[in-house]
Every structure is written in structure tokens, then in C-alpha cells.
């Protein structure tokens, strides 16, 4: 699953640690999600959407990431 987490985080000048704290997960989890190695659960995806004040589909895309 593709996502714009890294871009959105950079736009707000947040570190991975700061985003992790806001979403109450580990920094490693944020890193794995940004790299497309781990797909977040629906509750975590909604939490991210609320944090960025965006619709969930503006952050996460069902399309498989090509490496």
C-alpha cells in the first residue's frame, strides 16, 4: 500500500519520532509505514488522517508500491 506519510510529515517539519509520539507508536513503525514495508491497521490509518486533517484516501492508496 502506498502512502504520503513522509511527504505530509516533511511539509509540517516533523521528525519520525514526533509523528510516532503523536500516533502513539514506535519510531520504527513510522519508518516501516513510510517505506511501505508495513501496512497500518484501519484505526491507526484513521488516527493519521485525523492528525493531518485529511481524508484517509488522501494519505493511503491501495495501489501496491513498485520498488
Amino acid at each position: 500500500m502506498k502512502n504520503r506519510l513522509k511527504v505530509l510529515r516533511a511539509e509540517r517539519d516533523w521528525t519520525q519520532a514526533q509523528l510516532a509520539e503523536a500516533l502513539e507508536v514506535s519510531r520504527q513503525t513510522i519508518n516501516a509505514i513510510e517505506k511501505g514495508k508495513f501496512d497500518p491497521s484501519l484505526p491507526l490509518a484513521f488516527k493519521a488522517a485525523r492528525l493531518f486533517k485529511l481524508p484517509i484516501e488522501d494519505i493511503f492508496d491501495d495501489e501496491v508500491e513498485t520498488k
Binding site: Q18, E21, E24, S26
Partner: peptide, 16 residues
């Protein structure tokens, strides 16, 4: 969010 906020992360605190 500040660096200080990060250091007081509830996730990390609970986890520790």
C-alpha cells in the same frame, strides 16, 4: 510538537 514532547512520549514511557 517540540523535542521535549517527544522525550515525554506516552508510548515510550508506557513501554519502558
Amino acid at each position: 510538537m517540540t523535542k521535549q514532547d517527544c522525550e515525554q512520549s506516552s508510548y515510550q514511557t508506557k513501554n519502558n
